[in-house]
Design a protein around this nucleic acid. Sequence first.
DNA 1: AATGAATGAGTGTTCATTCAT
DNA 2: TATGAATGAACACTCATTCAT
Lengths: 209, 209, 209, 209
Amino acid sequence: MALDATPAQSRTKGRETAERVRKAALKLFAEAGYAAVSMREIASAVGVQPGALYNHFPTKQDILKDLMLSHMAALLAAWENAGFPSAMDPLERFVRFHIRYHLQRADEVFIAYMELRNLDPENFAAVEAQRNRYEAILTSILEEGSTAGRYAVDNPRVATRAIIAMLTGLPTWYREGGRLTGDEIETLYLTMVRKAVAPVDTQSQRETG
Amino acid sequence: MALDATPAQSRTKGRETAERVRKAALKLFAEAGYAAVSMREIASAVGVQPGALYNHFPTKQDILKDLMLSHMAALLAAWENAGFPSAMDPLERFVRFHIRYHLQRADEVFIAYMELRNLDPENFAAVEAQRNRYEAILTSILEEGSTAGRYAVDNPRVATRAIIAMLTGLPTWYREGGRLTGDEIETLYLTMVRKAVAPVDTQSQRETG
Amino acid sequence: MALDATPAQSRTKGRETAERVRKAALKLFAEAGYAAVSMREIASAVGVQPGALYNHFPTKQDILKDLMLSHMAALLAAWENAGFPSAMDPLERFVRFHIRYHLQRADEVFIAYMELRNLDPENFAAVEAQRNRYEAILTSILEEGSTAGRYAVDNPRVATRAIIAMLTGLPTWYREGGRLTGDEIETLYLTMVRKAVAPVDTQSQRETG
Amino acid sequence: MALDATPAQSRTKGRETAERVRKAALKLFAEAGYAAVSMREIASAVGVQPGALYNHFPTKQDILKDLMLSHMAALLAAWENAGFPSAMDPLERFVRFHIRYHLQRADEVFIAYMELRNLDPENFAAVEAQRNRYEAILTSILEEGSTAGRYAVDNPRVATRAIIAMLTGLPTWYREGGRLTGDEIETLYLTMVRKAVAPVDTQSQRETG
DNA sequence: AATGAATGAGTGTTCATTCAT
DNA sequence: TATGAATGAACACTCATTCAT
């Protein structure tokens, strides 16, 4: 006798629902903020009763944790597989990657920066560890580039934060279909970053400071 | 005349309570976010019953609006009275002012950036108008400096946003008493900003791009 | 020395405010019901702060009691001074008086019938005693008229209630300026009441029963 | 099929709770008035937490609307199925029906007359439409009877309101077990109504007016 | 996996009332 | 007599969560 208590169909249906919960929560959290979104709203967006959410996530907090951890994991994985020309300057590589990825995933990024304080301490630590790993990539690039004389950065940790803040601010105002194409924006930001860390020996600004 | 129906003492007491409400709400909103703070928590921090808050602010939303609008007004007023040496480069002036002001008012700044979406549309418009006025200051500096050849900025609006994002990110991680003094941080950021907008004619990065 | 702590001016002003409170409360209670009207609303209608009401009425309940008792007193006094031609049939006298008075004081009447249950037991007893005195007038008229053979009423208490209910329902729908004048309405109701209590010996309805 | 996601038992339990809410609210509204009854009181009478009420009625207003609309619907349905001897005079039919129904449903009737002003405009319109349908029944009876010469009614609309006010006032004071039986009361009122609309040709009151 | 009913705590806000001034 | 600030309790309603089915 076939006593399969959880047939393949059910498992698939469940996985699909979980995914719809993630998508709905992502959108709603990004729009209104974690604290302002209720489980009822998420359920309603999914087309399900509130109780059903608890078949897929044990608490509301777990939905947030899931979104943030999987975002960070996806970000790091995407960097690993970025596939830029090997001749490209590492800083350019990072800037282009960061801008493209963050413009594509505006909601995830927004949540990742806004909802950190709504994470339980344990989940916060996990997310922050990932974030540090990501920032360390840029710090390494700056350190190695400075050592090699390609860049001039006084304090790579500070420069990392400054650059990431600058780049990450982009999706809060940039909208596709506006005056600037994604490529143009990318170039504008890349130019500013490069100059900001460029060796200063012959820079004319010396005279104007 | 002895017919003063609202004695000065009462009014003074009320104004003091209102100020304590503002202070408590500022701290709590900064810590946990507007949506996650209850009127009861604010009242408790003030040392008053919840109902008493409504003698000073008609709604919770009005507290937020008050905090944000008065922050923006204070920011613009502070810029007017900044009092830098007149010989100082305008960009340096702006960067130093912005960093100093934002490090001193970390809570206000944090709220001003985080709680925009929790403002009613009307209040949002008012705050945004102020924000645009502030950003326009930097845009003007960049435009005039570019025309004069002191800076080289392809798109002053974009550069404004990039620079402000970079600078405003600072209070989220910088803590006094750490490795770097405020002056050191200021100098580090100032250097990066200057380089980012510096004329490029002789910049060595040209060769690495 | 003249140590008059409450000068005549003050006393007059106070009496005027009390009267304005009565008027405002009357209107608001009639519109929305006692329970749904707040002291703040009354104060606001008077143009005064809520606390000031307590200089004139010790509680909200006392305002209601004041309105209802003074209405009943005024109603009974008006009946005493009605001044109808002495030859007029007593029932006609009562019906005409009742309709006229109740159409003129629609708000008071409405409250007197609707807000009985919102009176404290003690106040309720006082108002009901007055109401019974008023209804006893009609009952007497019916009893005396029955004895004299002018009317035929099986149960004067029941007839009293029936007639008063009929008449008192009038102000709930009658509006001046509509199709019927006050006089016409008065005549229509008077006719119905008279017929209802008329001796039946020759009434044709006998045959239809 | 075992895929019934909402088992009959759950739905039944819910329907029973909703019915208990209706019953409790009916009693409490009749006693104290809609505005003076809190959701907490209703919940407590039902034996449930306040929040549970909202599984059955979206707002307090909806409970009132439900009570009033279903009362009006039941009243009209009861008239359709009243089942009086076909030979009975239509007016007698209506009076007997109205008195019996209204004595049996004193709470519903009381609410239907007292809480009209607490209905939202939309709900008020719906209830009033039903009320007009009910009153139109009596108006038709009076009109047809007048045409046929059975009754003499100057203004059937006014007479309708007068008669209904008279009859509806009954449950506010009549209590079973008192001096008069229901049948006796019914007869007393019926007699008054009949006389009030009776043809006047030979009425002796003519001489007394 | 999903429902609908329920809980117990909490939400922003309003209440009648008090009181120092 | 009136104010403005405060209280303490209550308001209608929503919350995240549980659970029998």
